[in-house]
Each structure stands twice: as structure tokens, then as C-alpha cells.
Design a binder for these strands. Structure first.
Length: 218
DNA sequence: AATCCAGACAACCGCTCTAGG
DNA sequence: CCCTAGAGCGGTTGTCTGGAT
């Protein structure tokens, strides 16, 4: 709860404190919100006796003080999920975080920038060429279950240079048991109906259900 | 012991979106 | 519609820490 780092906060031109939060500030913010709720963030700052912007209070609460945050490091399983979701959703960190309970967009973004991105680049698989959101909006899914392989592929229109399609796999594995076969059939029906949101949700659930050692070593 | 440097994380900035007047 | 304030988002910067020299 308490900020263990040194208090580097200093007032800015508008007389608002900036920089790292002190344990006292954390305590004030936490007890105010747990007792009275948020209301508006600018009022929280004032009512909690903080010389911080409402924006700063919101960020501190969302990224650090919220009781439902997971404190443990991001697991291998979650890392795989981040990579997969980034491929599907692009750099929409809040959308990715929404599918990972207890994790924040800031945490995921930092994790991506400091670790995964580097890791992918080392492997020559940097996905910075992920399609823009508008392109993702036009994407469609293909799911191939032939030959006992479950291969889920997202395709998207590349309107900029009018190439018909580019595609990138978000998931591929051997269908080895009954449960996977059912999953494959499920994906297949979703992709045929172009139900992208459900496909992504189902994919997330499936990924989370896998034991850690199943995840590909990216 | 001092310094440097890279990695990790916290926080800020600027922008967009949305709701209400 | 237009304007404004607040909220939220993603990119970027700042700060701290620990390891290497």
C-alpha cells in the first residue's frame, strides 16, 4: 500500500503536487475513496485534502491502490495472453486489460514495452506492423480444423495499398483431445459467422484454461 | 566505494470521447 | 448544434534500482 520509494513529489506551477506519491497521500486517497466513493475525481482530490490533480488521483487509484489489483508478477500464461490479444486488438491496452482481471492498462503497456516487444524483436517477430484499428474493424476470422490441427487466423483488409488480404495467426495447436475438438468446432462456427468479439472472448477463456507449460515460448 | 548503465515501473502529457447544459 | 468539464486512453518521460565495471 505505502509507496516505498522516496517522495519525489514537488508542487508545479498550478500549486498541484507532482511526482511520486507519498505513503500519507496514498492513505488519504485510499481511505477517502473506500469511505465515500469517487464522485468526481477533481472533488476527490479536494475532499481528501490532496494537492493533486483529479487526473493524478484517478491514475494512482486505478493503477496502484484499487483493492482488486493483482500484485503478483505477470505469469507466463498472462504473457501469452497479452501477446495474443495485442495481435488481435492492437495497442488498445485498456481493451486488453479489460480481459485480464486485476491487471491495469498501464501495467500491461509497460510490460509490453519493456519485455515482450524486446523479446519479439530479438526473435525477428516484431508485430509493430499490426493493422490499424480501422483495419482490424474490417477483419474476419478463419478457422481451419482439418488434419487434426486447430489453426485460428485473423485476416484484415489492407485498404491503404489495396492488397487483398494480409493475415496473421493468433493461435494454432494440435487438436489432441475431445475438449480441444469442441473448442475448435466452437471457434469454427464463430469465425464463419464473423463474430469477432465472441471469438476473442472464447479465445481468451481457452488460453486462460491452459496450464502454463502448454503456452508457446515466445 | 564510486560511477555508469539498462531495465522496470510510476507518473505525466496531450489528445479524444462523452455527457450535460 | 455548440461549448465545457470530466473521464479515459496511449505515448512518452522521469525516477529508482540493481548489476557491472
Amino acid at each position: 500500500m505505502a509507496n516505498e520509494k522516496k517522495d519525489g513529489a514537488k508542487p508545479c506551477a498550478t500549486n498541484k503536487r507532482k511526482g511520486l506519491w507519498s505513503p500519507d497521500e496514498d492513505e488519504r486517497l485510499y481511505s477517502h475513496i473506500t469511505n465515500y466513493g469517487v464522485g468526481t475525481w477533481s472533488s476527490v482530490s479536494e475532499l481528501a485534502g490532496l494537492k493533486r490533480s483529479g487526473k493524478s488521483c484517478r491514475l494512482r487509484w486505478m493503477n496502484y491502490l484499487r483493492p482488486d489489483l493483482r500484485k503478483e508478477p505477470i505469469s507466463k500464461q498472462e504473457e501469452g495472453l497479452i501477446v495474443s490479444l495485442q495481435r488481435v486488438l492492437g495497442n488498445r491496452w485498456s481493451a486488453i486489460a479489460a480481459r485480464m482481471p486485476g491487471r491495469t492498462d498501464n501495467e500491461i503497456k509497460n510490460y509490453w514495452n519493456s519485455r515482450i516487444k524486446k523479446k519479439l524483436r530479438r526473435m525477428g517477430a516484431d508485430r509493430d506492423q499490426t493493422p490499424e484499428t480501422s483495419q482490424i474493424a474490417e477483419k474476419s476470422a478463419h478457422c481451419n480444423t482439418e488434419d487434426g490441427n486447430l489453426d485460428v487466423t485473423i485476416s484484415y483488409n489492407n485498404s491503404a495499398n489495396e492488397k487483398p488480404h494480409s493475415h496473421f495467426p493468433i493461435f494454432a495447436c494440435q487438436v489432441t483431445d475431445e475438449q480441444n475438438c469442441e473448442q475448435a468446432a466452437h471457434y469454427s462456427s464463430l469465425s464463419k459467422n464473423n463474430e469477432m468479439d465472441l471469438l476473442v472472448e472464447g479465445y481468451v477463456d481457452f488460453l486462460m484454461s491452459l496450464p502454463d507449460d502448454v503456452h508457446a515460448d515466445i
